[in-house]
Design a protein around this nucleic acid. Structure first.
Lengths: 265, 265
DNA sequence: GTGTAAATGTTATTTTTTGTGCGCTTTTCT
DNA sequence: AGAAAAGCGCACAAAAAATAACATTTACAC
């Protein structure tokens, strides 16, 4: 009660940090000015403390204070990845959206580009989305016109998606109109790369059960290789990328077979 | 009560935003004028706050105010549900935790009591958890010693869990040591009730594939019936409830076959 | 003590937030 | 339907806070 009046007590930085956490467990938010007064230190010091706590994901900083990191009941997010090249991904997703008609059964792969597509599908009519991605599922769980079928499987630690034999087996129970896949890299030769072997396996299966398959990849993925090759662009029907992709590569890809769509910036 | 007269307290923008949401969880709508007065800020500022909350899909703006989105209503309901009788549920979960040994393969049903158990399993060693619940999966997705297998299936709108033929089919691929189930009601005759038919069906399958089955239900569920009967306590091996349960009912349940455990308060 | 490194404070600069005026749209009242 | 009122949101200026760079103090080993 009187800390603000008698700031004699000396706190080490870690003592302050634990105190801030205690404070937040009983209070919904704290202000920097308040904490600085209470500890008898400068606001800069409090900011540094909060930066440490934020680093440890204990608190979330706000302007002028901090609050506990709020955990939603269902949180499967990738924040950092999702921001990278986001406008390009959104443009690609918008092109992909045009391919979807009411009544379609879709397969949506894991990935940030397909997640953008999921957002655009939220207002869809009578669409069924089959996916191994928990992020896609949670994005669409409240969409009125979309039925979400989640494939079973092993949850990869830290990645909100399912892989493994169960996923492949579940997938084999379905037949879809259209499969949308992301990729971690597209080789100059048109090879489709994935950074996870099990994901590559699931991707191959997706193309098998879908009548029409579509790969989405922004230009930064072109010329990049990764661990596992799930196939080549010759195996897919449509390839969508953004305006940053080199024209020569696109001409080459088109010769392999797929229809190549370039999303306007 | 006197916030409008003495707006001394300073709110950071995010504190205002959380406050607005909390307000909306108990009230169906708020007006901008009201909020501006309460916080001692201009209406423009409140509008900006609402714009942020709308961006996050937390509220839906109306003329002169805002209301919660359906999504957030569900989120708050879920939280409220989880808080109900929480100490009892945690005590029950703690008893259930004792049955789990390293190396076990578990099935965890949907429900708030089993969700509490999931929290306690986070520090487990070499445990496999098979579940149709996205909440359980979300809770355990970063647990180092736990492998999470999510069953496939149809995502029920508004409920973070999977049901349907695919779920049952996926389940049939497994064999588990121990299944933990919740219940929406336990009849005086020992019948196990569920409020959803498809869930009841999944529950029956769970008992079939697990060597040992365990039902968790706090005392408020005893004597309650619901839509679908998934079986009776005679079909399960262990029943765990809390100290609030009437001794006479427990004696009766024990006669049906299961080992009855009462968690200390 | 002295030297060194870590922690804290200070200041200038940049970024974010907030309030106000004003034209425009939506709602409400008659 | 038409007019008045209420609400909306843009643009700009002012205020508050965050950040980065630098100065100072403190802690601690030797």
């Amino acid at each position: 009660m009187f800390e603000t009046l008698i700031p004699v007590k000396k706190f080490t930085s870690s003592a302050r940090q634990t105190h801030i956490r205690d404070r937040l467990s009983s209070q919904s938010g704290v202000s920097i000015a308040e904490l600085a007064r209470e500890f008898g230190v400068s606001e800069m010091t409090v900011r540094r403390d909060l930066a440490v706590l934020e680093e440890q994901a204990h608190v979330q900083r706000t302007h002028g204070g901090a609050k506990l990191t709020e955990r939603m009941i269902l949180e499967f997010n990738y924040r950092a990845q999702r921001e990278k090249n986001r406008p390009a991904k959104q443009a690609i997703a918008a092109e992909a959206r045009k391919l979807v008609k009411p009544g379609h059964r879709l397969i949506l792969d894991t990935g940030t580009t397909t997640l953008e597509l999921a957002c655009l599908l939220a207002d869809g009519q009578d669409i069924t989305v089959i996916t191994p991605s928990l992020a896609v599922a949670s994005e669409l769980q409240h969409a009125a016109g979309v039925e979400v079928v989640l494939l079973g499987g092993i949850l990869r630690r830290g990645s909100p998606d399912l892989t493994g034999p169960v996923t492949e087996h579940s997938l084999s129970l379905f037949a879809a109109d259209l499969a949308f896949q992301g990729a971690d890299g597209i080789g100059h030769d048109g090879a489709i790369y994935n950074s996870d072997l099990r994901l590559a396996q699931v991707d191959r299966m997706m193309r098998r059960v879908a009548r029409h398959s579509c790969v989405l990849a922004d230009h930064s993925k072109i010329g990049v290789t990764a661990l596992a090759r799930s196939g080549t662009l010759a195996d897919v029907d449509t390839f969508i990328t953004d305006a940053g992709a080199p024209a020569s590569a696109l001409r080459h890809f088109a010769r392999l077979g797929p229809k190549v769509i370039t999303a306007a910036r």
